[in-house]
Amino acid sequence: DTAAFLPAPQNLSVHSTNMKHLLTWSPVILPGETVYYFVEYQGEYESLYMSHIWIPSSWCSPTEGPECDVTDDITATVPYNLRVSATLGSQSSAWSTLKHPFNRNSTILTPPRMEVTKDGFHLVIEVEDLGPQFEFLVAYWRREPGAKEHIKEVRSGGSPVLLETMQPGVTYCVRAQTRVKAIRRYSAFSQVECVEVQGESLPL
């Protein structure tokens, strides 16, 4: 009976980028069978005060694939334990627990993708939407000696924002970084993008 001994999933690990946390593991392969998995978590509070308590993951109790988005489960900046069990019919494997607890402050923050455009004399930027936890710091300046760098806080991505009314014949450059309050960290700045507008000067 192939299910008599159901191996526990192995090689658990968390890949976290821009506050999206993905738990992955090596699939349990039984020819001709569909194996499901249950994922559970406990925060530092549970592990310290009530270590027998594990909470079913929001999206993976059960799940079919060897991965689970645990973003909605990790809701504090403290270490979290995560574990996975394989099931086949009424059979369940032992629990496999993540070797090292995961803390969301270890997430990788990438520079934001952005699109810098001009509309008439208007310098416009649209930053990618990374979700409610993200704000953006946008720096822009005129590419000329001694130019001052202006900073604008953009509270959410996904919609175009006007930065400046441009003077014709002047090149304007822009770069941006993300900021996550929940972990008090910033990404690196993005590549610089520059635009210039041709044409007559605006009547003052």
């Binding site: 509309d119 004399f121 208007h122 416009v124 649209e126 953009v154 509270r155 919609s159 175009p160 924002v161 006007l162 009314t165």
Partner: peptide, 21 residues
Amino acid sequence: RVNHTYQMHLGGKQREYEFFG
């Protein structure tokens, strides 16, 4: 809203604002 594609943003605690350009 400047046109169908984008809008200008201002914000803060003060009570008087002006959109230029």
